[in-house]
């Protein structure tokens, strides 16, 4: 018989009475939910309650994930040194400025188009996206990409 290492002679409790049977259910459920949401979104039109509700769902999930992600970092500040004892981050790579330049140029052009009329002569980024997702298949692809982007930027 497997005895308790404390020497009391009592039988050693089993290491795992209840095995973890969760497996990959979480990602599967999330993937299914995202697929259902994307299909529903592909049949909505902007400026409708349906579109707002479908878009608000992942936004709410992202907000919740962001709050959960930020809270432990704030709580452990100054108390848990183990996370802060790692080496300081390397200084920013000078070539990272190219990314900054591209973002500034894109945002600048977006603002220029947004502030000028007529809209037909100054299409904004959302106008370009509207052209792509005017049909359900286009919206399906665009909404999928947006959800994937949210997963990478907010959840992960």
């Amino acid at each position: 018989m497997d005895t308790n290492p404390s020497g009391s002679g009592l039988p050693k409790p089993p290491r795992s009475v209840v095995t973890d049977r969760r497996g990959p259910i979480g990602p599967v459920v999330l993937g299914l939910a995202a697929a259902v949401l994307t299909v529903l979104a592909s049949f909505t039109s902007p400026f409708t309650l349906g579109a707002e509700a479908i878009t608000a769902l992942p936004l709410s999930a992202g907000l919740a994930a962001l709050v959960l992600r930020l809270r432990p970092a704030q709580r452990s500040c100054g108390t848990d040194r183990s996370q802060h004892d790692v080496a300081p981050p390397e200084p920013p790579h000078r070539w990272a400025l190219v990314w900054l330049g591209l973002v500034v140029a894109t945002v600048g052009w977006e603002l220029y188009c947004y502030l000028n009329t007529p809209r037909s002569s100054h299409p904004t980024l959302s106008g370009l996206i509207d052209m792509l997702d005017a049909r359900p298949i286009g919206k399906f692809v665009a909404f999928s990409l947006w959800l994937a982007l949210g997963w990478v930027l907010v959840i992960q």
Binding site: A41, T44, P46, F47, A51, E52, I54, T55, A56, P58, L59, G62, L63, L66, S126, I129, D130, D133, K139, A142, F143, W146, L149, G150, L153, V154
Partner: peptide, 15 residues
């Protein structure tokens, strides 16, 4: 990043 993602989605799909 989260705000940018939220703006992109809301602006593109809701309003």
């Amino acid at each position: 990043l989260a705000v940018g993602w939220a703006w992109l989605g809301w602006h593109s799909f809701a309003r």
